[in-house]
Design a protein around this nucleic acid. Structure first.
Lengths: 246, 246
DNA sequence: CGTCCCGTTGATCCCTATCAAATGTAGTGG
DNA sequence: CCACTACATTTGATAGGGATCAACGGGACG
């Protein structure tokens, strides 16, 4: 006895953009809603990709574990995004693990339905292609940053991006509105929790951010943007660093 | 007066897999073939994405230039692959530049045709999604490597991958069958040409590879694989490095 | 045959990982 | 409600992997 899910919840999602309402209803009829609390796994790396999902509320993280046991953050999932679409790319298993970092609500569909959606509505296929294309862009941006930028710059960009997608205005500045640890920031930027901690401490010292346990609040966006653009952190002037000169 | 392109040239390409032959003929009728020599540009970063392409013969490189003027290799295009499909992901411009590294032949279509292909044949849409999905996987693999592995390991993997996709057996071992510089290897692995040069010299010393101007030949795959898997290069035993222990 | 372009190799330095240890904070069970 | 415990964070000290700086050698091509 599944309650039907209100159409209004999904009709504005990118994936369903310009999809006729009747098709939407058919899609929703077979969606299975799931409620998660912080730490709940959604799927595990290597598992057969039986389902795909859309996040309606909350925040999830997608993490890859290397052969040596190190973790690399693939991405945070924010409300409205599809995830777990391995099967759509003809991958039999999930290439990473996914878990909730706070209370969340997701819709799940059997992977077999993907082809139905694609065949039933061409707009859906185009939307999916765009979604994956956007992720590819993001990944390539990250490669560029890992290849050419220094740690401070990468961490600054990372914080800015999180604030952009999940920022929430508070009396003290703009806060990242879900719990996030130094370790997780390190896994996103290819560094260590120690270095992230040192950076945040330094920034806090200068009043650019406020921090707490699993909490980051940005107080001076402009200064952070300057760091992200590559300006040196200390007022002293070192010569510009340039790894692969033209 | 465009000569029609033989159907046999494209019918085995991933992008056209399971696409009916009559649809293929329609597609080929509007394809524009281009011949390139080493150094010829195909498109430039920032240009309006007016065309998309398939490489029939040769090798191209796709490179991104950062705001600071450093180059990052996005990928090498090998025969049979689609590239320049920015418009399909609803990006108005090419996010990187593409040029031939040796004599090459490509087919070009106006970007506007993409939607025709998609609408006309659903299989095509699925194939495109898979192609982009594969690239996303590759990009994420690279992020993982940049985040957790050391330079020697990354360069070893890079060489192995090139040998895998574009290796050619010679009397001396397996050669990368297109010209490639130390600088380009550096741009693929996030390091400098100096470090790549030193590594190749060391490997050559040990008889693992043979090198020359714009040339790399692998002589001992096994040893190279061992390096890529993370085993230390010198026979001496250092403690295992581990950045983000569990 | 000169001139780029590519590659090699030494010397030095510095960013940041690593090692080590203490402090702070939330949650839990008695 | 408090002791206990697990997890997060901070901070100092040290070392090392590679980037950077510098200079030269060698092959290809016009």
């Amino acid at each position: 006895m599944s309650h039907s899910i209100p159409r209004s919840l999904v009709k504005d999602l990118d994936l369903f953009r310009a999809v006729p309402e009747q098709d939407l209803d058919a899609v929703l009829a077979i969606a299975r809603p799931m409620r998660l609390v912080a730490g709940d796994p959604v799927f595990q790396q290597g598992q057969s990709a039986e389902q795909f999902f859309i996040l309606l509320h909350g925040h999830l993280k997608v993490v890859q574990t290397t052969a040596e046991g190190e973790q690399v953050m693939v991405r945070y999932v924010i409300p409205g995004e599809v995830f777990g679409i391995a099967k759509a790319m003809r991958r039999p298993t999930y290439p990473a693990s996914c878990m909730a970092v706070e209370e969340s609500i997701v819709l799940a569909w059997p992977s077999s339905e993907w082809d139905h959606f694609m065949t039933g509505n061409l707009q859906f296929a185009a939307n999916a292609l765009q979604a994956v294309g956007q992720r590819l862009q993001d990944a390539q941006t990250r490669i560029k940053e890992l290849s050419t930028e220094e740690v401070e710059q990468r961490v600054a960009r990372c914080i800015l991006r999180l604030v952009d997608s999940s920022g929430e205005k508070t009396e003290d500045g703009i806060a990242i509105n879900f719990p996030i640890t130094r370790q997780e920031i390190a896994e996103m930027t290819g560094t260590t929790l120690h270095t992230v901690s040192r950076l945040l401490s330094a920034w806090k010292e200068r009043g650019m951010v406020n921090t707490g346990r699993k909490l980051v609040i940005v107080r001076k966006m402009d200064d952070l943007i300057r760091l992200a653009e590559g300006n040196l952190s200390d007022s002293a002037n070192k010569p510009a660093a340039r790894k692969n000169p033209v």
